[in-house]
């Protein structure tokens, strides 16, 4: 069984005002098939954790480690991490001019699997996934994310999640900017991916909204660059009622 372990992770970022520490010792273990939600106020470092796992060059790991089945991830390049089985669904997916969705998906699938997917089954697989995510066929021939609405970009991320079949996926605020219909479609896609591949999920969110459709096994409250409290799905309900004030006061005092 696969496991993703984050151990005492300290991360900083270079800003105009100098180096800024963002993560102050994060510990988290995700087993295959588990859904972990990370919730926290703005600026608590949630997205930094997501991008650090994916290997964005902006973030520096000062100490600690990320292990995928015991293998150190922090020394891998971005593409090596993806090929090792990690996936990040981005909050703001990037436009890629001149590259169609079809071409992009095939290239990514080939890179991840090491061989080109068999053409006929692949086309069918792409078409079925797009249909389930209510993506029009014309998306296949459009350039990646170019002119996509916010909701279309998020669906395109989940499309990739389904097709690339990672072992662990981080969803960075996938729910933000989605209306309730789009939120349902995207959530269904995530649940389908989990059912089909048994992947582990790290769901990063500010709101509890998405947790109505994707039930987490564990909820972690992220405050000031570390996990402040952990619990089951009931913790999310409590946050819905109380908000983050309790944690913010504590951190300010501390």
């Amino acid at each position: 069984m696969s496991v993703l372990e984050i151990k005492d992770l300290h991360v900083s970022v270079e800003t105009d005002q100098g180096t800024k520490q963002i993560l102050h010792g994060v510990n988290l273990t995700i087993n295959e098939g588990e859904i972990h939600a990370i919730m926290g106020p703005n600026g608590s470092g949630k997205s930094t954790l997501a991008y650090t796992i994916a290997g964005h060059p902006k973030y520096t790991v000062d100490s600690g480690s990320i292990l995928l089945d015991g293998e150190e991830v922090t020394t891998m390049t971005v593409d090596q991490r993806a090929r090792a089985g990690l996936f990040l669904a981005m909050q703001y997916p990037v436009e890629i001019p001149g590259v169609t969705v079809t071409n992009f998906l095939r290239t990514a699938k080939t890179a991840i699997d090491g061989v080109a997917p068999p053409i006929r089954t692949w086309i069918k697989e792409v078409r079925d996934s797009m249909k389930q995510l209510r993506m029009d066929k014309s998306f296949a021939e459009r350039n990646v994310n170019e002119g996509f609405s916010g909701g279309e970009k998020k669906r395109n991320e989940i499309l990739q999640l389904e097709l690339l079949r990672p072992r662990f996926a981080v969803l960075d605020e996938t729910d933000s900017g989605l209306d309730v219909d789009a939120l349902k479609i995207v959530s269904e896609g995530v649940n389908r991916a989990k059912e089909n591949t048994g992947l582990g999920l790290l769901l990063i969110t500010h709101y509890t909204r998405i947790l109505r459709y994707i039930t987490p096994d564990f909820v972690h409250v992220f405050v000031d660059g570390r996990i402040a409290e952990q619990g089951g799905p009931e913790l999310a309900d409590r946050l819905e009622d109380e908000g983050y004030d309790r944690f913010l006061t504590e951190s300010n005092v501390g």
Partner: peptide, 25 residues
Amino acid sequence: DEQLFYLQSRGITEEEARRLVVRGF
């Protein structure tokens, strides 16, 4: 760099990412 990161995060090497974009364009 953000486009490069996006493509790499899908398993595509830097060299291939550049080629993909230019070829498509």
